[in-house]
Amino acid sequence: MSIIEIFFWLLSGLAIFSAIMVLISKNPVHSVLWLIVVFFAISGHYILLNAQFLAIVNLIVYAGAIMVLFLFVIMLMNLNADADPQKNVWLKVIGIVTGGLLLTVLVSAVRSSNDLVNRSAELKTGSIGLIKSLGITLFNEYTVPFELSSILFLSAMVGAVVIGKKE
């Protein structure tokens, strides 16, 4: 087993374990912290695929910005295990059933897609995740969607400022 394989299994195990911990942690702050661990494990996978830019952007956007926002809100609201309302047992059963159905759909979709079957990942070599090739693709083939999404972000920012402004 090569070093890359060992890393792959370690990271996958870590990702799945911490994803489960996100769900079963009683304390919301612990859940958020486990979610950060999940993002780190996924970034590790990106690095194994030589997509360093994607890995770093994943860290900046999710672990660095969105999760910090989550932590802020949860910590300030001081949610803890006692404040958690008792849920109906039937609600849990329905949740498991719907989640399981979604999993089945996703797995069957991945298994039946012709693009993915019998393909192996490019380890350490591919250049698709590097900043140069990503930039060229974004600004050549997807210029209009890219610009549209930046306008979307801008309008979201302006909206936040308008809502936050004092009367």
Binding site: Q52, I56, L59, I60, A63, G64, A65, V68, L71, I131
Partner: peptide, 17 residues
């Protein structure tokens, strides 16, 4: 690494956590 400067700003944002 080929994104050295970005790496620094990404990792230092973990400091907040």
């Amino acid at each position: 690494l080929n994104i050295g400067v970005l790496y620094i700003s990404a990792v230092s944002s973990i400091m907040v956590i």
